[in-house]
Structure formats: structure tokens, C-alpha cells
Amino acid sequence: MTAPYASDPQRARGRRVQEEESTFRSSFQRDRDRIIHASAFRRLKHKTQVFIEHEGDYYRTRLTHSIEVAQVARTIAGALNLNQELTEAVALAHDLGHTPFGHTGEDALSDMMAPFGGFDHNAQAIRIVTQLERHYADFDGLNLTWETLEGLAKHNGPVTGDIPWALKAYNDTHDLELGTFASAEAQVAAIADDVAYNHHDLHDGLRAELFSTDELAELPILNMCFAEVDRLYPGLNYYRRRHEALRRFFGVLVEDVIQLAQARLMTLQPKSVSDIRSADRAIIRFSDDVFDDLKVIRSFLFDRMYRAPSVVVMRAKVTRVVEELFPYFMAHPDQLPKQWRKDVEAINSETELARIVSDYISGMTDRFALQEHARLLSGTPQAEMAS
């Protein structure tokens, strides 16, 4: 039984292109399934978070991260009596717009695209699911429901001020009401993203030996988690000890979100999803105390992981890959694949060409970007990666 403020697929605002409804799947289930079968979703397997694709098989990729986010999101949505299918659809699609090489690749592509309107991965996700996935006979994109598109567009809350061009271009034709909060389901997907990366970045940093278990045990929240493990399992194996502590850390974050949301919902007594959208702040969030503790943890990760010397060296190498591929394709659009060259034939400006090149590069996996750089530009960075 879903709550009155949950998104109801029977009352969904529909799709931009009208379709017959499925006889056995709700509209939100169809959204989820289309996302899973999308080419952009499959490519997440070889797009990385922090570490580059070839650095190890055990580090998170965008695909494993998205699956973890979806698992957390369904758990929270179930506890709050929300629609789990919509929550899962937004969670699985939230990273579709990411470039190769994680945020490093996005920073490099953003710099390249600065004269042409910039690049934003959330807006690119909208561009992918509304235009760039071209498999269906009746429409470009995946023709997702308004609710799923809203969740992707407002992944970080209401979108005001300078709206990324890719999002604005779509919103001008299909109003996603960018100035309001998203549904509770979309807010759950967004907070699940925070829960997942706060957990797995610690795990990946330990695996990469960028910091020690003892250092983690001194951080807020984690100190209590390690203390509980040591009390329950004195003398536990090193690897099991850290896994048990991180598992408890994961649980603390999820429980905090659920408890605060339940309290907020009890106070506000929303009667519909519209009440969620018009609230004065996000319903789904961390408590102030946990949020403050997470800032300390993120600061630790920034210093010890994201700016670790080995990571900084790799960032420089992959930044060069993007910075050299972009001008190459701008000067040689004939080197784009055949289906992309057809789009080039229809353009009338350098900005339109840049946006096609940006679409192409942002869709690359880490591996393919390195291979293309090696093939087209004698690829010294690829050789350096292996050294």
C-alpha cells in the first residue's frame, strides 16, 4: 500500500509521445526496463568513478555504482511507502550522462565545451534519454514518463538560475517544472546516490591503499562502527573487520535518512505528490548531525583519495586524452562513425558541431577513449597508463 504522497503510475503525466499502455507493466516499470536495455546503460560497465578502468577489476564502475544506488533507493522507498519502480528508474538512470574517466573527464570536457554552452552530466542524461538513444521506430530517446524525466532533471534539487543548455532545450518543449522539488521517489534516488558513494569511496580507497583502516576508525560515525565490531568480534580478521564496520556505516546513513523522512512526513502530513514538490525544502535528506559528520569524511576523502599523488597523475593523463580528442574531431568530423556523420551533415554552426562531438566523446567508455586516442593521435597517454 503506497502513501498518498507517493507517485501513482495510474495518474502519471504521460509520455511526450503517446503510447499504448502495457497490459502487465506499469508505466514506471516500463521506464526502468527501457533504461536497463539502453546502450548508454550498458556502457556504464566500462566508465569509472575515481579509478581508471584498467587499474583493477574490483573498483566500482558507473554500472556497479548505479546498481548499488538502486538497491539503497528501493530500500528507502519501501520503508516510506513510496513507488519503488519510479525510484529505481531514476536511480538506474542518474549517471547515464557521465563522461569517461569520472569527474576528471567531465571537467576536461566542460573546459572544451565552455565556448559552446558548457557540459553538465545531469543535463546530458536528459539529452541521452530524450534524443541520443535511437532504437525505437516512433521516437528518438526512450520516451520516458514525465515523472522519470523530472527526477533526472532535478537530481540535485530545483534547477534555477543558469540552466544548462541541454536541459533548457528539452524543457522548452516539455515543461518539467524545474523550479520545484522533485517527487519523493526522485529525492530518494538522489540521497541513495550520496549513501552509495560515501560508502564505496571509502572501500575503494582502502583497496587502493590510499589510507589505512586505523585512519578510518578515527573518523566520525566510523569510529562508532569500528568500536561496535571490535566489541562483538574481538580479534576479527583485518578484511572482515573493515567490511563489518563499513557495512554498519552504510546502515547508519540509510537509517538516518529513513528516520528523518518519517519525522518530516509526520509533521507536514502531505496529501499528494504535489505537496512534496511545493514543500519549502527537500523531504528526503540527512539529519544535520550526520550531514556535518559526512562533511568531515568527504574532506578526508578529498585530501587522501581524490587528490592523492597517484590519482592526480592519472587525472592529468586522462585529461590530456579528452583535451586532444575534442579538437581532433572538431577539425576532422569525417572521422566520426557513420551514424554521427549524418548528424554533422545537417548542422549550420560550429556550436552544433561541438555539441555533436561532445555527445560522442561523453558517451565513450574509458577503454574506448584510450583506444581512439591511440588510433587517431599516436596515443602516448595509453602507453603511459600501462607504465
Rank of each mutant, 00 (worst) to 15 (best):
H332K: 06
L63R: 15
R15E: 04
Y197W: 04
V321Q: 08
R207H: 07
R42A: 06
H46L: 06
F291P: 04
D8H: 14
D172S: 11
S278C: 10
E150P: 03
E20Y: 13
V322T: 07
L370H: 12
M385R: 01
G97R: 09
R127A: 15
L176K: 09
H373I: 01
M305H: 12
S387A: 11
Y238R: 09
F116L: 12
D120F: 15
F226N: 00
S310H: 08
E55G: 02
Q262L: 13
H332Y: 07
R320P: 05
N198R: 05
A190H: 05
R320Q: 15
T213Y: 01
G379Q: 11
T365G: 00
A40V: 05
F226I: 07
S358W: 15
A89Y: 11
D280F: 13
N198P: 13
F302Y: 14
Q84S: 05
G78V: 07
R60C: 00
A346K: 13
L167K: 11
V195Q: 03
A186N: 05
S39L: 12
T48V: 00
T104D: 02
D366Y: 04
R43V: 01
G97F: 14
I283F: 13
M224I: 03
F139C: 06
D303L: 12
V313Q: 10
I356P: 10
A227R: 13
P164Q: 08
A70K: 10
S310I: 09
R231D: 03
N171Y: 10
R264Y: 12
F300Q: 00
F300D: 00
V296Y: 01
R264F: 13
I35P: 06
A190T: 08
N81R: 10
Y58E: 07
N156G: 02
F368C: 07
T61A: 04
P333Q: 01
D140S: 10
K168M: 02
K47W: 08
H332C: 04
L336F: 11
A346I: 01
R285A: 10
L219V: 03
T23A: 10
H199G: 00
T148E: 06
T180N: 13
R277T: 11
E21D: 10
D275V: 05
P234T: 03
I128M: 12
A192F: 13
T2C: 04
F41G: 03
A38Q: 11
S378R: 05
A137R: 15
D120H: 15
T23S: 11
N348Y: 09
H121T: 09
T365K: 08
D288P: 03
H54P: 04
R25M: 04
R247P: 00
R42W: 13
R247F: 03
V313T: 07
I52N: 02
E68Q: 03
L44V: 04
I347C: 14
F286M: 05
Q124S: 09
Y328H: 14
V159R: 10
T351I: 05
E106A: 01
E68P: 01
L253I: 06
I361C: 07
Q335F: 01
R277H: 12
A123K: 12
Y233T: 03
F300I: 06
Q269M: 15
R60S: 00
G105D: 01
M266I: 14
D256L: 07
R281L: 08
R242K: 13
L167Q: 13
Q259V: 06
A386H: 10
R285T: 02
D256V: 08
H203V: 08
F181L: 15
A38M: 11
H155D: 04
I52S: 01
R304K: 10
D33K: 05
H65W: 01
A192S: 14
D343C: 10
